[in-house]
Write a protein that binds this DNA or RNA. Structure first.
Length: 587
RNA sequence: GUGCCCGUAGCUCAGCUGGAUAGAGCAGGUGCCUUCUAAGCAUCAGGUCGGGGGUUCGAAUCCCUCCGGGCACGCCA
């Protein structure tokens, strides 16, 4: 709840308002573009504001002049110890050390909740991710989106949104028919029938044998020799339930638990699709019409047919309108997706985030226009696209092929490298970029491996605290106690730099949440770890910079407060990413 | 053909939604372990941010246009 940059932005704003009241600058200037940020180069100061440059035109003064005026006022604040005007008109300033002491205390007081903020204002947000259809276990390809979605949801919670983690699956389409057929075949097999090879088009995976075994255990041979209309719904429901349970177990392995599971069948059966369609008709965006034959394909016996069409064309993304129902009267693929978002609307969500693979690029064009119509333009749909993951072992690509059944499952991934490493590594790139996932690198214990590098910093903090316990057995080393240490002893440039960097954590959370980019947390932690490792090594060259000094308990406690804060901020970031922090490295 | 994403150090990638001298890791050069974990740190070298125009106090970032790469474009799901 304490973003020091916001606090100083307010102070700058107050000064500008006073200057306006005094007639130094015009009244009613728009301060919307004024920022207070850490300068790119730390040597410029602790904070920098662009106010003079942004306001110079409207104020009718040149930026340097205006900057000097602002600087003069800032200098009067006791909590600011140095102000300079630089470059094109940046006003740079440094804070009194006491300000950083307060920050340090804040971190220790707020603990893992440091960085929480209210940017979201309690707004309801629906984050939909994974949403794999129940046709098989989770595989490596699903993991990227799963991890990014989960971390994004955590991030938004931290930023003050009311987040629902949601999973949607299709349990009514053709894929499910195929699943049903496969299940029945395996069911007969489980009862002793020789079924030969699994026919092309059905699911060949071994897990379908488990499904069949479980059904035999429940129902015996009850479904042999009965009509398909009798066994089909049973096979279907049993297989879907069984596989969804498998998927949930897989997700549990990487610590992912959704709040809500939604499915297509329910919406078809309870009439949501019909109601939704009617609504779209009432809004005047649906009509009966015909489409030209598909381009680029020679179609024999092409006959135009009347279809239920949505006016996609007027939204600019498609050349033709697209059908909501097929010529045979059944729902087109888009319709359940549209109805599902209609359902989200009815549950009070206007902000909806979907985490999807890069291969679903036109999702927002299919669902977006109907959704804006249904919500009178109130709905905000943001699609976070995830790039493909390429698997490597010892630098060699791992060949995957669906045909040969050579897929790597989520379970294998987790068992080989560990859940925490999988999660962290998946966020070491921007979401939409391709990611090389190297099994060897992920477990490597070197700074080349960002997971290790960050965990090592955390473990070093823990190590110092352990050593402190031996050196000062009677001392209370809890965060609360350390916060009461004489923090004025934190005074070297290197120590203050560490505090300054940590003071940027709330800012990083806010920015990452707003951009829907959880990978920024991974980068922030890497940078923080780097600052910490750097300071650690300075203690090797210069003994006075070491954390623990047996003959100076006061200094030791102040430095332990710093160490505890670093540990806390790293843990806070890892919590967002869903990665358990490590207390001790071993191996 | 249309739409979206990308092009930044030799390689893999960041770049805080328009800020100051464009950053990190790997690879290469040079240093640092009797001291809290050297599983690390410091330092040097490496760049016309794909090309060209535009917007403004200011562009890797926004707009246009070329070049080059990736993905998606059914009355499939």
């Amino acid at each position: 709840m304490s973003n020091i940059f916001h606090a100083y932005k307010d102070k700058v704003g107050d000064i500008l308002n006073k200057m306006a009241a005094n007639g130094d600058i015009p009244q009613g200037l728009d301060l919307g573009r004024v920022t207070v940020e850490p300068p790119k180069d730390a040597s410029h100061g602790d904070m920098a504001t662009n106010a003079a440059m942004v306001l110079s035109k409207a104020a009718g003064k040149n930026p340097r002049q205006l900057g000097e005026a602002l600087a003069g006022k800032l200098k009067e604040l006791p909590e600011i110890r140095e102000v300079t005007v630089a470059g094109p008109g940046f006003v740079n300033f440094r804070l009194a050390n006491t300000e950083w002491e307060v920050q340090l205390q804040t971190i220790l007081t707020e603990g893992i909740h440091y960085g929480d903020n209210k940017a979201g204002g309690g707004e309801k947000v629906n984050v939909e991710y994974v949403s794999a259809n129940p046709t098989g276990p989770m595989h490596a390809g699903h993991v990227r989106g799963a991890v990014i979605g989960d971390a994004l949801a955590n991030l938004l919670k931290k930023a003050g949104y009311d987040v629902t983690k949601e999973y949607y699956f299709n349990d009514a389409g053709k894929q499910i028919d195929v699943l049903t057929q496969t299940a029945y075949l395996r069911y007969r097999e489980a009862l002793g029938e020789d079924i030969g090879a699994i026919p092309e088009g059905l699911y060949p995976g071994e897990y379908m044998k488990d499904v069949a075994q479980a059904l035999v255990a429940r129902d015996g041979k009850k479904w042999i020799g009965v009509a398909e209309s009798a066994w089909a719904p049973v096979m279907r429901d049993f297989a879907v339930d069984y596989i969804m349970k498998m998927i949930r177990e897989d997700l549990d392995l990487i610590g992912i638990h959704h709040d809500v599971f939604s499915n297509e069948r329910v919406m078809i059966e309870d009439g949501t699709l019909d109601i939704c369609l009617k609504e779209l008709i009432d809004k005047g965006l649906v009509y009966q019409g015909t489409l030209p034959p598909p381009m680029g394909k020679e179609m024999e016996d092409w006959e135009p047919a009347e279809l239920t069409l949505f006016r996609y064309k007027q939204f600019g993304h498609y050349e033709e309108d697209r059908p909501l129902k097929k010529r045979d009267g059944t729902w087109a693929y888009v319709m359940p997706d549209i109805a599902y978002h209609y359902n989200k609307l009815s549950r009070g969500f206007t902000t909806m985030i979907n985490v999807l693979g890069n291969d679903h690029k036109d999702y927002e064009y299919r669902v977006g226009p109907p959704l804006s119509v249904l919500s009178d333009n109130k709905a905000k749909l943001d699609i976070v696209y995830c790039g493909m993951v390429k698997l490597f072992k010892n630098g060699e690509p791992v060949k995957l092929s669906k045909r040969s059944g050579n897929i790597i499952t989520l379970r294998e991934l987790v068992e080989e490298v560990g859940a925490g490493s999988v999660r962290f590594f998946m966020m070491t790139r921007t979401p939409d970029s391709e990611l090389d996932f190297d099994f060897t690198k992920v477990v490597e214990q070197s700074k080349d491996n960002p997971v290790f590098y960050v965990q090592y910093a955390h473990a070093r903090c823990a190590s110092v605290l352990r050593n402190a316990k031996e050196m000062f057995p009677d001392a209370d080393l809890s965060a609360a106690a350390l916060g009461k240490a004489n923090l004025a002893r934190i005074s070297s440039a290197d120590e203050l730099q560490l505090v300054r960097f940590m003071a940027g954590w709330p800012r990083a959370v806010e920015a990452a949440a707003e951009a829907h980019e959880p990978h920024r947390v991974a980068f922030y932690l890497h940078d923080l770890a780097s600052e910490f490792h750097g300071f650690w090594n300075k203690g090797r060259d210069d003994g006075t910079l070491r954390f623990l000094h047996e003959n100076d308990r006061e200094l030791s406690m102040a430095r332990l407060a710093l160490v505890s804060a670093v540990k806390t901020v790293i843990a806070s970031g890892l919590a967002v990413m869903g990665v358990p922090p490590v207390e001790e490295m071993h191996g």
